[in-house]
């Protein structure tokens, strides 16, 4: 393992901003794994740290394939994480809306360009990322639904679901989209948590990446086979909305099965404590996403359900 500097930027008042990567093996650029791009993606940082730890052990055993290299970049935005802000510490721009970047552009475009130039030639790209709405997902692999997508490869992670997302205009500036555009097979892996560490889903995520690398012949690693993934299209997930604002009491968790009409959550009057709304399952299915915050706004998407039809 070698630790390498990818981007350095001088700060007026802080230590230099640095992005560091960990390289395993030598040879063709086979797989690049990136972690926290937002300052609150602690789980994503943790997962990458555990992957680095696991790969170090694999390397010591001599179980890295000859002629292939793996790059792991655990944090792309340490400045924001250190001051507990989600986006860029100076102007609150989202680094994951700056790709492929511009070496002569504004600060976050330069950072994105520095990262992208370094990682764009890898054959496979894996990103641990988070959703802009607070909540938990079933661990899954997410891909942009473009001509470059490769569902067969996504299956090799052994996670239960693959989610295809039709790109919206703002997606065109994400790392995943630009990786795909530059012929890297790109996957975003979502786990249960963002701001807190969830050991169980982190363990699942680490296992999924090692399984993928093993199946692609990059490492030797013994693991169980995982799932035969079900492929879903994001637009076919059923959204369940809150009709009221108030205190939110979650009943159903990601992965739970629900029957039509079954209570999934309650919204309480914030002053009087009475239940002002009982959120019921609109169809039979499995909970794919569940709202997490203890407060909820009217019209919030509190659940996304995989309807039974897809199972």
């Amino acid at each position: 393992m070698t630790k390498e500097n990818i981007v350095t930027l001088k700060s007026p008042y802080r230590d230099d901003f640095e992005i560091n990567g960990y390289r395993f093996g030598k040879g063709e650029k086979t797989c690049c794994i990136v972690g926290a791009m937002r300052g609150n993606e602690v789980q994503q940082l943790y997962v990458c740290s555990q992957i680095i730890r696991a790969l170090s052990n694999i390397e010591k055993k001599g179980d890295l394939a000859h002629g292939k290299q793996i790059m792991v970049i655990p944090s792309l935005n340490p400045f924001s994480m250190n001051i507990q802000r989600r986006f860029w510490s100076v102007d609150n721009t989202d680094l994951n809306r700056m790709f492929p970047g511009d070496a002569n552009g504004k600060t976050t475009q330069r950072i994105a360009a520095g990262i992208f130039d370094f990682i764009k030639e890898y054959q496979y790209g894996i990103q641990f990322t988070s959703f802009y709405i607070s909540g938990d997902f079933i661990p899954h692999v997410r891909m942009m639904d473009t001509e470059h997508k490769n569902i067969g490869l996504a299956n090799l992670f052994g996670l239960p679901y693959i989610l295809l997302r039709k790109p919206k205009p703002f997606d065109t500036a994400t790392l995943n989209f630009n990786w795909q555009n530059s012929d890297t097979s790109a996957f975003s892996v979502y786990t249960n948590e963002t701001e807190h560490i969830d050991e169980e889903s982190a363990h699942i995520a680490v296992g999924a990446v090692l399984r993928f690398l093993s199946r692609m012949g990059v490492i030797k690693y013994q693991s169980h086979g995982g799932y035969m993934a079900t492929t879903l299209e994001e637009e076919h997930l059923m959204s369940v909305h809150a009709q009221s604002g108030g205190i939110y009491r979650r009943i159903k968790q990601p992965g739970d099965e629900v029957e039509q009409g079954e209570a999934m959550a309650e919204i309480l009057d914030p002053f009087e404590g009475t239940v002002i709304e009982e959120i019921k399952a609109p169809a039979n299915g499995i909970v794919f996403f569940a709202h997490k915050s203890p407060l909820v706004l009217e019209n919030s998407v509190v659940y996304k359900i995989i309807k039974r039809l897809h199972i």
Binding site: S244, G245, G246, I247, P270, F271, L295, V296, L297, E298, N299
Partner: peptide
Amino acid sequence: DVVSVSLPVN
């Protein structure tokens, strides 16, 4: 009002 949304607390 063009649109309004109930916030959690009153």
